[in-house]
Simulated scan of single mutants.
Amino acid sequence: MNEKRKPKSPDEIDAHIGRQVRMRRKMAGLSQEKLGEQLGVTFQQIQKYEKGANRIAASRLFQIAEVLGSPLSYFLPDNSGNGGEEGFAERQTAFVMDFVSTAEGVELNRSFTHIKSSKVRRRLIELVSEIARDQNNDASQE
């Protein structure tokens, strides 16, 4: 009866809300410690929220939304009526959200939005796309 238990993976909704909290916190330029101070919790608790390891109570999510200056709906998944089935688009969205919530993703987005010329933004997208294609081609030839 002494079976080893497999660590429980976070619920997908908890993980989604955690990713949203992380992304919004980074966009606001707050550290986990600073957000924790404003909420009266430790930075370790913020880490657990962001990983989806600990669920965020509705009242706490409301506090987070207020501190980060976001509507509560920003953190919640879009319930488009797909019956809870995660398809390719949802997995791609999670992948993008994971990247955007990194320091590099936040900096890239922040810098990109400061470029006023739509022509320059379009050329940058084309350049990055070409680099990615070249890297994929190089990797497939190895």
Rank of each mutant, 00 (worst) to 15 (best):
N137L: 15
P71H: 08
L108E: 05
I17P: 02
S80N: 12
F62N: 13
L30V: 06
Q20A: 10
M97D: 14
G81I: 06
R19E: 02
L124G: 13
E66I: 07
Y49A: 01
N79W: 07
Q45H: 06
R122H: 12
S111R: 15
G52A: 01
L124M: 15
D138E: 13
D11T: 03
R55A: 14
A89W: 08
N79P: 00
R22D: 02
G81R: 04
P10F: 00
Q135V: 13
F88P: 08
T42M: 05
L124A: 11
E37W: 05
L72K: 03
T102V: 06
I56Q: 08
K51E: 08
S117I: 04
M1A: 12
P77H: 02
S31T: 15
S73P: 04
V67F: 02
F88E: 13
N82T: 07
E104N: 14
H114P: 05
T42K: 06
F99R: 04
R122C: 09
E3V: 09
L124Y: 05
K51S: 15
K48L: 02
L39P: 04
Q20L: 01
E33A: 12
P10G: 02
I13C: 02
D14C: 00
G83E: 04
I115N: 13
V41A: 01
I64C: 04
L68Q: 04
I13E: 05
A94W: 00
M1T: 10
I131H: 10
Q44S: 07
E33L: 15
G105N: 04
N109L: 15
E33S: 11
A65L: 04
S59P: 09
K116Q: 12
V100L: 15
K119P: 03
V106R: 09
A89L: 15
Q135D: 13
E3F: 10
Q45I: 06
R110G: 10
L124W: 03
R55N: 07
A94P: 01
D14T: 00
N109R: 14
H114D: 13
H16I: 00
Y49I: 02
Q20N: 12
L39C: 02
D134A: 15
D134H: 13
G84W: 03
F88Y: 11
L72D: 03
K6D: 07
D98L: 02
F75A: 01
Q47R: 08
Q47L: 03
E66M: 09
R5A: 09
E130P: 03
S111T: 15
K48I: 00
K119R: 11
P71C: 04
L61M: 04
K116Y: 05
G84V: 09
I13R: 05
A139N: 13
L35I: 06
Y49G: 03
E37A: 11
F43R: 15
N54Y: 00
G52Q: 01
F75V: 00
E90L: 01
F43C: 10
I56L: 09
G18H: 01
M23K: 15
Q135H: 13
L108P: 05
F112A: 12
E130T: 12
K26E: 08
Q38G: 08
K26F: 07
E107Y: 08
T113L: 08
A58H: 11
G105L: 03
E126Y: 02
A89D: 11
E142L: 15
M23H: 13
I17E: 00
R60G: 07
S129G: 09
Q141Y: 06
A57S: 09
K4Y: 10
T113E: 11
S59W: 03
K116S: 14
E3P: 08
A89Y: 10
S80R: 14
